[in-house]
Simulated scan of single mutants.
Amino acid sequence: MRPTALKGSAKHRPGYHAIVLGVGFVVGGFLTQFARMFLPAGAVKEFLTTGVTPSIGALPIDLIIIKFAVGPIALDVSLLSLVGVLAAYLIARSLF
């Protein structure tokens, strides 16, 4: 039996997927902010830039010697941020 070559995303490590996802959200965030600044007010602007913002409150960390809090952390997901993720995926897939 001949071993089959891995196809598609199966040949990449999880770090690769995390980087592509991160780059996609950053590009999508830029697209969202660009649209919020330059699109005229109307239904299209509202549709493209309205997002869901899940957040986690402040997380206190006590390490006996030092105490600090991380947060709150929020993620603004809009249609344009998902377009950015899709674009990053398609570009990465075509390059690698």
Rank of each mutant, 00 (worst) to 15 (best):
F30K: 06
S55N: 15
A88H: 01
S55D: 15
L86V: 07
L6E: 06
F25K: 07
V27F: 08
I65A: 11
G22A: 05
H17V: 11
V20A: 00
L63A: 15
V44K: 00
S9I: 14
A58M: 15
P40W: 04
S55I: 14
R2L: 08
P14V: 04
T32R: 01
A35G: 08
H12G: 02
D62P: 01
M1Y: 02
E46K: 00
R93S: 07
I65H: 12
L82M: 05
V26D: 02
I73S: 11
A43V: 11
S78P: 03
T50D: 13
L82E: 02
R36L: 14
L31G: 06
Y89C: 03
G15V: 06
A92D: 05
I73D: 05
V83L: 03
D62F: 01
I66E: 14
G8P: 05
F34R: 09
L59G: 13
R36V: 11
A41S: 10
A88E: 01
V26H: 06
L31P: 05
V52S: 14
I19P: 03
I64T: 13
F68I: 11
K7C: 11
F34E: 14
Y16C: 02
L86R: 03
R2W: 05
V77A: 02
S55Y: 15
L82I: 02
L63K: 07
A41G: 08
D62V: 03
G51F: 10
G24D: 02
L79S: 03
V70I: 15
P60A: 10
P60Y: 10
P3D: 05
I91V: 13
A69N: 15
V44N: 00
F68L: 14
A88V: 00
P60C: 09
H17F: 14
M1I: 08
A69K: 15
L95W: 13
V23P: 03
L39S: 06
R13Y: 11
D76S: 09
L59P: 12
A69M: 15
R93W: 11
R13D: 09
P60K: 01
V27K: 00
T53W: 14
P54R: 09
P14Q: 00
P72T: 08
A41Y: 10
A35Y: 03
G57F: 09
A35R: 04
I56L: 15
I61P: 11
F30Y: 13
A5N: 02
K11D: 00
S81K: 05
A5M: 06
I19M: 09
G42L: 02
V20M: 04
K45T: 08
V70Y: 14
K67P: 10
F30Q: 11
I73L: 15
G15C: 02
A18Q: 07
F30S: 09
V83M: 01
G29E: 07
I65P: 12
L86K: 01
I91N: 01
S78M: 03
A74F: 13
L82F: 05
T32D: 07
I64R: 10
G8L: 07
V20W: 09
F38W: 11
L79I: 12
L75P: 04
T4N: 07
D76T: 09
V27G: 02
V70N: 12
I91T: 07
Y16H: 09
F38L: 12
F68A: 13
R93K: 10
S9C: 14
D76C: 06
L39F: 08
G42H: 00
R36T: 13
L48Q: 01
K67G: 15
A87E: 06
F47R: 04
A74N: 13
G84D: 04
I65R: 12
